[in-house]
Amino acid sequence: MRKSTWIRQHLAALRALLVLTVITGIVYPVAVFAVAQLPGLHDKADGSLLEVDGKVVGSSLIGQSFTDSDGNALAQYFQSRPSAAGDGYDPLSTAAGNLGPEDVVDSAPDAPSLLTTVCQRSKEVADREGVDGSRPFCTADGVGAVLSVIGPRDAHGEVSHPVQVVSVNEACPAQPFLATYRGVRVDCAEPGQDYSVGRIVPIPGDAPADPEVPADAVTASGSGLDPNISTTYAAIQVARIAKARDISEEQVRAVIDAHTSGRTLGFLGEPRVDVLQLNLDLDRRYPYRG
C-alpha cells in the first residue's frame, strides 16, 4: 500500500470519528435535553422530585424508609415494602436479594434464609398492625418451619424409615414447632451441626393459604427501589395511622384513595399506592402532633 493511500484512509477515518463525536456526543444529548425541558416533561426528566417548603424530600419513582434511627417503624407513617438495595432504597446499590424459593435453611443466626426472613417480616408487620401474621411454612415465632428428615432412602429419594428428625431453623434449646414427624420425635438443631444429610422438608402448617399480611409487605422488589405498596398492605396500616394522627379511619382511607393508581393500561399489574406521596399528603392534611 502506497503511503499516500494510507494517509487518505486514516484522514477519512479521523473525519468520520469527529463527525460522529459531534453528532452522538454533542448534538444528540443537547437535543434530548431540550426536548426534556418541554412543559409536561420537565419534572419527569429531572427525576420526578417532590418538594416540601422548597426542599427536595424524595422522588415519586424511588421508595424510602419511614423509620427512626434504630430502624423502628414510625407510627404516624405508612411503611414501604422491604428493600435489598444497600442499606435500603439506595439508588447506587439497586439490587434484589438473589434468593429463590429453595433458600429455606438458615446459614447462621445472623444469616437467615429467605423463608425465615419472610416469616420474621410477617410477624413484625402483624405485631405492628394488630393482624394475623401466620403464613404457610412459618412457625408461630417467625422462622422457617423446615425439618431435616434423616434415615434410609428409597429409590425415589424419599426417607422410608426416619431415624432422626431435626427442626433445622430452631437452634437448641428452642422447643421445636412440631413435636413428632411420622412417629419420630422432632429435635432442635444443635449449633454447628450439619443436617444436610437429611431430606429437607418444609412444613406448610395450618396457616391460611391467603395470608392477611400480603406478599409485598414481606418481600423486596427486584430493584429494591419500588415506591409503591399494594392496596392490601395500605389497608392493614389504616388503624395505626388513624390512631397515631388522632383522625378517623375514613379520613385515612380517603387519602389512600387519592394516591392509588390503577392497573397500567387497565390490565397490567395491580392497583398500587405511592407511599411517599401518601405520607406527604397526610402531613399536609393531618399533621402529626405526637
Rank of each mutant, 00 (worst) to 15 (best):
M1N: 14
W6D: 12
I7Q: 09
I7F: 14
A12G: 13
A12V: 07
R15D: 03
R15E: 07
V19G: 02
L20M: 09
L20Y: 12
T21N: 12
T24C: 11
T24D: 13
G25L: 06
G25H: 14
G25W: 07
Y28W: 11
V30Q: 10
D46A: 15
L49R: 06
L50G: 05
G54I: 01
G54S: 05
V57Q: 14
G58A: 00
S59R: 12
S60E: 09
L61E: 15
L61N: 14
S65K: 08
F66S: 13
T67R: 14
T67L: 05
D68F: 09
S69D: 06
D70G: 09
G71D: 03
G71K: 01
A73L: 10
Q76F: 01
S80L: 08
R81Q: 15
R81H: 05
P82L: 03
P82Q: 11
A84E: 07
A84V: 04
P91L: 03
L92I: 09
L92R: 15
T94L: 10
N98R: 13
N98F: 15
L99F: 06
L99Y: 02
P101V: 11
D103P: 12
D103H: 02
V105Y: 04
S107P: 05
S107N: 10
P109R: 08
P109Q: 13
A111R: 11
S113H: 11
S113M: 09
T116Y: 12
Q120S: 11
R121N: 02
R121Y: 02
K123L: 11
E124Q: 12
E124W: 01
G133A: 04
P136L: 03
P136D: 06
C138W: 12
D141F: 00
A145K: 11
L147K: 04
S148N: 15
V149K: 06
G151S: 08
G151I: 10
G157I: 07
E158A: 11
E158M: 10
E158I: 03
S160V: 15
S160C: 07
H161A: 12
P162R: 00
V163P: 06
V163D: 10
V166P: 10
V166D: 03
A171Q: 15
P173T: 11
P173Q: 14
A174M: 14
A174L: 05
Y181T: 04
R182W: 08
P191A: 08
G192V: 10
G192N: 08
Y195L: 07
S196Y: 00
S196V: 01
G198H: 09
G198S: 12
I203S: 07
P204Q: 14
P204S: 10
P204K: 14
G205H: 02
A207G: 05
P208K: 04
P208I: 03
A209M: 15
A215N: 10
D216Y: 01
A217Q: 15
T219M: 04
S221R: 01
S223R: 02
D226T: 02
T232K: 04
T232R: 13
T232A: 12
T232Y: 13
A234K: 06
I236Y: 02
V238C: 03
A239Q: 05
K243W: 02
A244N: 13
R245W: 07
D246W: 13
E249F: 01
E250G: 12
V252F: 03
A254V: 15
V255R: 07
A258Y: 04
A258I: 14
T264E: 13
T264W: 04
L265C: 00
L268W: 14
E270G: 00
D274F: 09
V275M: 10
L276Y: 06
L278C: 04
Y286L: 10
Y286Q: 15
R289N: 13
